[in-house]
Amino acid sequence: MEVSMRSIVLTKGVPDFSEGAVSFDEDGHLERGKTPTVMNPNDEFAVQAALQTKVRHGGHVSGMSMGPPGYAEVLEEAMESVYLDDSYLLSDRELAASDTWATAITLNAGLETYQEQVAEIDLVFAGFKTADGETGQTGPQTCWGMDWPIVTHVIALDVDPEERRLRAKRLVEGDVDEIETVEAPLPCFVVTDPEFEPTYRKASHRLTHKQLRAETQERAANHEEHLTTWDHVDLNLDPDYIGLDGSPTIVSSVDPIPKAPSEREATMIDPGEDDMGEVLEEMHPFAAGGDAGTGTGD
């Protein structure tokens, strides 16, 4: 008997810290309003694990994120990469300024609401940590609220839907990196490691992967039609336990982000005729296509 799998992949939007994209004020503080938001890089491995599960075993994969309305674009990005069937955004002002604990409470409520209104969940996938928080707490805290088994630092996995078992390899870091194989019953929470690599050894898996990609292009183009937004009322959450009021973390201070040092030496010149001649002389080897270090351009 074929068993249909239900998976949720959690993802978050973070500032785009790539060179030239991030914006700082004069004091060196991040300006989120002027910095593009992208999917958290570590979530990409959770996305790949969810996609591998869907390719191998079929079923339904939903994306879920907590954040402002703009995070819908992050879920759209996830739909394009993991071929999500639909997305769920947990969003309203009461959720603003949540720390990891308040975020986990909200995500937990989102998963429970999904199970009450949509379907029972077999697997939840989460990334190792976020690029802006670097705590690695939200996934395990969310799982603690679900009272499910959790497998962290997963680098490879497979599922037996009929036996309802997860078998995974996880990276154990110590004096020497080791890999251990573990099993867990479903439903289960999976936190992927950056070393995770999806594998599609069977021709049927590769064909399914191609078909899903084609199907998702049309779905992602109309992402809003497949997006559900829940606020704290929909999630039956008390405002005293979410957002800033529900966050026990106290930030004592914020240090400006140091600007990255230049990797190249620079010579400042005035745009005079003589100085520009020196610039042209320096650039000539590069324009000639030769070795700039030896000046042997032809």
Results as ranks from 00 to 15, higher is better:
residue 143 C to R: 14
residue 78 A to I: 09
residue 198 P to I: 12
residue 240 D to A: 10
residue 235 L to A: 14
residue 67 G to Q: 05
residue 39 M to P: 05
residue 137 Q to A: 10
residue 247 S to A: 08
residue 157 L to P: 09
residue 292 A to R: 08
residue 90 L to G: 05
residue 258 P to L: 00
residue 229 T to Q: 03
residue 156 A to N: 14
residue 241 Y to L: 15
residue 102 A to E: 02
residue 21 A to C: 12
residue 78 A to V: 15
residue 113 T to S: 12
residue 244 L to T: 06
residue 151 V to G: 06
residue 11 T to A: 09
residue 186 L to W: 07
residue 193 D to K: 11
residue 271 P to N: 14
residue 87 S to K: 03
residue 122 D to S: 02
residue 230 W to Q: 13
residue 242 I to Q: 05
residue 292 A to C: 10
residue 284 H to I: 07
residue 3 V to C: 00
residue 146 M to T: 13
residue 281 E to Y: 11
residue 120 E to D: 15
residue 255 D to H: 05
residue 52 Q to A: 15
residue 285 P to G: 08
residue 22 V to A: 00
residue 7 S to V: 04
residue 40 N to P: 13
residue 262 S to W: 03
residue 100 T to P: 04
residue 122 D to I: 01
residue 294 T to E: 15
residue 147 D to T: 15
residue 182 V to R: 04
residue 33 G to Q: 15
residue 285 P to I: 12
residue 138 T to K: 01
residue 104 A to L: 07
residue 47 V to L: 15
residue 82 V to R: 09
residue 49 A to T: 01
residue 262 S to N: 11
residue 280 L to G: 09
residue 293 G to D: 11
residue 90 L to Y: 11
residue 93 R to W: 10
residue 80 E to K: 03
residue 135 T to Y: 03
residue 184 A to Y: 02
residue 243 G to S: 04
residue 72 A to T: 00
residue 23 S to I: 05
residue 132 D to H: 03
residue 4 S to D: 04
residue 215 E to T: 08
residue 26 E to P: 09
residue 69 P to H: 08
residue 159 V to S: 02
residue 226 H to R: 12
